[in-house]
Design a protein around this nucleic acid. Sequence first.
DNA 1: ACAAAAGTGTTAAACTTACACCCATGC
DNA 2: GCATGGGTGTAAGTTTAACACTTTTGT
Lengths: 303, 303
Amino acid sequence: MKKHVMSAEEKRYLKNYDISAYDRPSLTADMAVFAILTAGEQPEYRKDPEKRLGVLLIRRGNFPYKDHYGLPGGFAAKKEAIEETAQRELKEETSVDHAFLEPFGIFSRPGRDPRGWIISQGFLALVDAEKYRVRAGSDAWEAAWFYIDVETEELTKHVRKSSAEITTLYRLKLEKEDIKLSALVKETRRFTEHHEKTEYEILEDEGLAFDHAEIIVRAFKALRDRTAQSGRIVFDLMPEYFTLYSLQEAHEIILGEKLLTPNFRRKMAPYVIETSKSVSGAGHRPAKLFKRNMEAFYSPSFD
Amino acid sequence: MKKHVMSAEEKRYLKNYDISAYDRPSLTADMAVFAILTAGEQPEYRKDPEKRLGVLLIRRGNFPYKDHYGLPGGFAAKKEAIEETAQRELKEETSVDHAFLEPFGIFSRPGRDPRGWIISQGFLALVDAEKYRVRAGSDAWEAAWFYIDVETEELTKHVRKSSAEITTLYRLKLEKEDIKLSALVKETRRFTEHHEKTEYEILEDEGLAFDHAEIIVRAFKALRDRTAQSGRIVFDLMPEYFTLYSLQEAHEIILGEKLLTPNFRRKMAPYVIETSKSVSGAGHRPAKLFKRNMEAFYSPSFD
DNA sequence: ACAAAAGTGTTAAACTTACACCCATGC
DNA sequence: GCATGGGTGTAAGTTTAACACTTTTGT
């Protein structure tokens, strides 16, 4: 980067500049880590086990929100970019390395953290669950996969002459064995002549820390939106070699709807490469294993 | 929002919690305000004046980067969400009210501000330029529209077995009367098996403050991407009543390519309503004025 | 008349959608 | 045999892209 050349006067100014004279927030990175999980054992011969979307949560061992569940995350350190904070904390807290990481929103509502003025950058993180069987960490916390379900519960529209207000309720359900967490998040989109604004409010919250219910819902929405748009993001949830059906399952789980196999395969064809490998022994025709076609990923058409 | 019920122990913990024990960054909101500007006078009878994309810059009256140009912005205050900071600062510095505002990136690279650890949330802001003729402000700064041009100068691909690296150079040119600013920003996209990362670096910088060259380039990219995707965002650059051709011009300016009129009109038809008004006196057939069709804006198909 | 912009119609190509159908396997 | 997932073909419908063409106006 080109260096800014400073005058003596500017240097003097900076020397006397006291940044601590102004009130400052703390900054954290919070990561919503998603993976496709195999839910339960194979129910019967030839029938594949159900797959579900999972999100990684940490049981808080300390105040505030002790014994509540929250997203992995932590405070930004000086001399690191916030993306590095995200990567570092993710590794420290959950041993997840090399995840796909993408910022999706900033959370700064006053009062969101009882410790004070703390704002958080939300990251969407995608991993192949098989590769990262999460270890319990130190005594302060333990990370675990929760099955996640987000349902759109209600939708109301108020349309006036030149403005509109659309309210959507999202029911967030998280579960792991006998632990069930739940929250209700309200989204309000306001459209006026030259203004558009979306606001979120947590109406109910059972067991989640801070405003993480809102962060999780918005992370899920970001994941679904990007899946619907290009589908590229879904590959980051897959292992190196995968069957086309498992890729389709991932799409279906995220989008919440069944897809037609022939059409899905045609759409994905340019972005995968057939390998000589295949999986057999499942009581039906062996499935060919594919890997992603790197060439296709940076072509403008897929972006 | 549901209130978190605290135990006496938790209250005690929070009372003793000293947030200032940790090092904290300062947080600012920086706004890239875009508008479609009329460039120069009508060149000749019947010929419409050229239109260009403009971005609002402020001449810095103080160190650091005194006399350089930067984006309007300012420090976040306690008890306000960062979106409120953006709105407040935009009004204070440029008198622009009710702009479309959307966060598009966070800028936290160490060393980006010589005053210390300062991170910035970037906002994309779109306004109708006719409505907001910018006033010069107090003596400390003055806001003015600059014509903006972003050209993709070079593109190199390095593809290996399971990874790829794509480098793009963006030439940013800003001008206003006799003032010309310029910068060269390098974008590096790295694709590896389970990782994708985009980095930016400012290679040249003539006259811009901080890392604002990078912020402006990325704001422009965000604007262009969203225009290509749905086109909805472009309406925020238009006045209440507009001709279809002016809407098309806005699209063309942002996308940097000519569009075919019949196809453009068909595509936009659902999102506009014809009014009885029209503009005449231009030496050619009068153009009907349209306004946006609010109903269409929150339909799922346009999102 | 004519240049400039406003606006419509027509067609081919590309892509999406839906559905019908066959294949291979292990018990 | 048969249930289950793996996999292909085809035709109808929709969207996009390209181009040719007509209309209206002020000087």
